[in-house]
């Protein structure tokens, strides 16, 4: 694909908006699609906010911000993305939702379109299995915040065309990011490693080995993690963590992936982490 080729981003929430920012920064035209036109507009506003922060931090000039934002266009219906060469899906983490939206994309786009899924826990192969052209799908897992994090895990489905893999690696490099190709496995490597580690920490807390602060100290100063696990879980949200864990557990049936009972109790009590003001820690703002 060339620089002039258009990229469509489906789902303009946290990840979609971040990915759209990165793609627009690389010089490509970006179309934003969400469930309703105002949501796609909101997605463009998050891109604008992210770019404005970049200007404040001195990462880009005001002129670059304006040019970048000019390349981002919200659309109100799927047929408007017919000309996209690459479609990146960042809709909610649900196999049915992802399969449905990608099947509709197949109907409106050319047979040459490359489809990326940003799934964090599902099998790319399982999503591909629902498509007419499974060979056009590949997993590209961005890290949050997607506009700044360099790593992109690239996971070909069993059905992916080798040419699609090659094009995708080049696409990610062109974003200025670092692609790492790995086999399709639920959670890719990041969540495959992190989620059971987090659950082990929660179980250690529940078993009374130490307090959340103490385990966070062991994990950072002892094990070399950049942030305490309980701080991180509070940031991610306990509800999100439980869903991610459950999805991985359903596929691996390994108890390390199963969300510990403490997580379920916290979710039931509305202690979701930062966003609710209470999680493993308390937040005053």
């Amino acid at each position: 694909m060339s620089e002039l080729d258009t990229v469509a981003v489906l789902g303009t929430g946290t990840m979609g908006a971040g990915i759209a920012t990165a793609v627009a920064r690389s010089g490509r035209q970006v179309l934003l699609v969400d469930t309703a036109p105002d949501r796609a507009l909101a997605g463009r506003r998050s891109v604008a906010d992210t770019l404005a922060t970049g200007v404040r931090r001195g990462n880009l000039t005001a002129a670059e911000r304006d040019e970048t934002l000019d390349r981002v266009r919200p659309v109100s219906s799927l047929p408007e993305i017919a000309d996209a060469a690459v479609v990146i899906e960042a809709v909610p983490e649900d196999l049915e939702v992802k399969a449905e939206v990608l099947k509709r994309v197949e109907q409106v786009c050319s047979s040459e379109v490359v489809l990326h899924t940003n799934t964090s826990t599902l099998s790319v192969t399982a999503i591909a299995g629902r498509l007419h052209r499974p060979d056009r799908l590949i997993g590209t897992h961005y890290c949050n915040p997607a506009d700044r994090m360099r790593l992109v895990e690239v996971a070909p489905a069993r059905q992916s065309d080798p040419a699609v893999v090659q094009q995708t690696v080049e696409f990610v490099r062109h974003l200025g990011k670092d692609p790492v190709v790995l086999k399709d496995t639920p959670g890719l490597l990041t969540n495959y490693l992190l989620v059971p580690f987090e659950n082990d920490c929660v179980r250690a807390l529940e078993a009374g080995w130490a307090t959340a602060e103490e385990i966070d100290l062991a994990v950072t100063a002892g094990a070399g993690f950049p942030m305490g696990v309980f701080r991180l879980l509070d940031l991610v949200g306990l509800d999100v963590h439980r869903a991610v864990s459950m999805s991985l557990y359903d596929q691996f049936h390994d108890q390390r992936f199963a969300p510990p009972p403490l997580v379920a109790r916290m979710v039931a009590a509305g202690e979701l982490g930062r966003k609710s003001g209470t999680g493993f820690y308390r937040y005053e703002d």
């Binding site: 890290c143 994090m149 360099r150 790593l151 895990e153 670092d178 790492v180 790995l182 490597l189 990041t190 490693l193 992190l194 993690f225 950049p226 942030m227």
Partner: peptide
């Protein structure tokens, strides 16, 4: 690369 770039 994944653990340094992705998990920090």
């Amino acid at each position: 690369r994944i653990v340094t770039l992705g998990l920090g």
